[in-house]
Amino acid sequence: MSESRLRISKIDEVTQVEFIDRNILDEANIQAISDEISGLIDTTSTPQILINFANVDHLSSAALGALITINNKTNEKDGTLRLANIDPQIYEVFVITRLNKLFNIHETLNDAMTQFNATTN
């Protein structure tokens, strides 16, 4: 198995996922990332996933596709996916594709965690 491209930690019921790479462009890496997060969703009854984009400078449409697949899988299990810390240039990609309407996007990790806590309490 290849080395993980993610840092994963658990805070309360929320699984935080952070990308190690600055560029999420490589097809093989994107597939590996998608498979790893999908595995986390599969092993959780109601997945609460927070993806931290703090390190990310570039992503491709294939990476957007992987995020959509992760979002769809999370929704199928009545879970919630939130995205945070997205660089303004990358956020613009979400706006152009209208994916800012599909995803729960937060400026900071704290904002996202507050929303998780508000919906679970």
Binding site: S61, G65, I96, T97, K101, L102
Partner: peptide, 21 residues
Amino acid sequence: DPTLTENLSKPFGRGVMLMKA
């Protein structure tokens, strides 16, 4: 058109639109 509401949750079909954008 990947920006249509019915296509938003499809995980493909955005490459050409991003190039044009």
